[in-house]
Simulated assay, not measured.
Amino acid sequence: MKTDARTVIAIQGLTKRFGEVIAVDAVDLNLAENEFFALLGPSGCGKTTLLRMIAGFARPDEGRILLDGQDMTAVRPSRRPVNLMFQSYALFPHMTVAQNIAYGLEMDGCGRDEIKRRVGAMLEMTELAAYGGRKPDSLSGGQRQRVALARALVKRPRVLLLDEPLGALDKKLREQMQLELKRMQHEIGITFVIVTHDQEEALVMADRIAVLRDGRTMQVGSPRELYEFPTSRFVAGFIGKMNFFAGARTSQGVAFGGGVLAGTAAEAASANGAAVAAVRPERLRLATARPQGTENAVAGRIVDIAYHGQDLNVHLAVEGAGEEGNERVLVRLPAGEAEGGDWRPGLDVWCCWDAAHTRILAV
């Protein structure tokens, strides 16, 4: 794999085995300077193992890890210009916030004035200036998370690695800290690599995302690329909600329900064989009669409605959708649009959408 001038970390053919299990399988990735990069995937996909190999806490069986062009594969963790922040935060309970942040600098033999200056700057950046003299047990979960972040950043690593850093926070605080992490990453200007299984978290924070499955990289791209243009059924189904209409691949699209659903085919979708037409719930429209001139339309019946405040989730029974007959299709209607229709269970409707919003994927 070639690297460019902006590449900070180049991962080349990285493989890690645990007995007969291949945890990471020949992964190639380039991580750019000042990039917020996410490793995303279900439990057991190899993302944490990959992160630990970048940090140096696990040795690969094959492949190389280059940092700024230098081979770091066999370099000890303490000699790598990277820092790893754990989900548990691992703060020293007997130390104050300022002492926790200063600990790494003291171990490196920094002078007292230098430590005071850098710790003060980190307290300001993480909005903890008023908490420097407190102990960790007197802080909220979000504040403890920021202390751990400040301690990791104060040493000015080339790369900061974060292993599920927001997993211990409640939903509201988690969403707040996602934006805080993004803000701090831009202000500091270093590369962040985060491991998460939360698709929404990755979409909100990351500049680019690598989706992993069974130790392999399924797709790498921006949040918009992964959401709007998935290249496989797995990525389409893992990133957000997706409806799948299964049928036979034709030159015009996917044969379904006596007609053809048109869309843009991913490269892996061959000209023949089984395929699915994939469309996001928010791209679908509902009508009580089939609209004239619509590109894609499927008849169904409303079976359930869920009110979410900002939108209405309408579940349809559509013959043949999914891998089996009578599968449900999800339609997400904005609150304003939902108010204009008398949508109710048992109502026969048409589900319509544009070909531009349809991805044709191999099964």
Rank of each mutant, 00 (worst) to 15 (best):
L50C: 02
M53R: 01
A321I: 01
L128V: 05
R146F: 05
D25S: 15
V220T: 13
L330Y: 08
C45F: 09
V363F: 10
L66T: 07
F37I: 10
P60N: 03
R285H: 13
V363L: 15
G293S: 09
S43H: 10
A277I: 04
R208T: 01
M205H: 01
L31R: 00
S251C: 00
R283H: 14
H357Y: 12
Q176E: 15
A74P: 00
R6D: 12
W343D: 09
G46A: 03
R158P: 04
Q199T: 10
L261N: 07
A266N: 05
S270H: 14
V329N: 10
H186C: 02
R249M: 09
Y227W: 13
R301F: 01
I239D: 05
F18V: 05
A202F: 09
A148F: 10
D163H: 11
T250C: 07
L169N: 10
G263K: 02
K171W: 00
G56M: 03
V220H: 06
M1E: 13
D170E: 12
R117C: 01
Q87R: 12
E35T: 13
W353F: 15
A274W: 07
L153V: 01
R332G: 01
A130Y: 09
Y103H: 10
R146P: 02
N30I: 02
M125W: 02
I194D: 02
P230Y: 13
V24R: 11
E200W: 01
D163V: 08
D214N: 13
M122C: 12
P230C: 10
G240P: 04
A236H: 12
A26E: 15
G258V: 07
G120N: 07
S138F: 09
T196H: 09
F229Y: 12
L66N: 08
G257N: 03
K47S: 03
L226H: 09
M218R: 11
A168D: 07
R144P: 05
R174Q: 07
D342F: 03
R80N: 03
V363D: 15
R144N: 10
E337Q: 14
G221V: 00
A265R: 15
V8C: 06
D71Q: 09
G258A: 08
T96H: 06
G189S: 03
A275Q: 11
K47R: 00
G320N: 12
R6T: 08
T196L: 10
Q310N: 11
E201S: 04
V349E: 10
A121E: 15
Q178F: 06
L347P: 01
E33G: 03
R59I: 08
R118Y: 02
P345M: 11
R144A: 06
R301L: 01
G69Y: 05
P334E: 09
G44A: 13
E33K: 11
R290C: 15
N272K: 07
T73L: 01
R344Y: 00
E200G: 08
Y227K: 02
A55K: 06
I305S: 03
T3Y: 11
L179H: 08
L169I: 09
E164S: 04
G322V: 04
G167K: 07
M85F: 07
N83S: 15
W343A: 03
A277L: 10
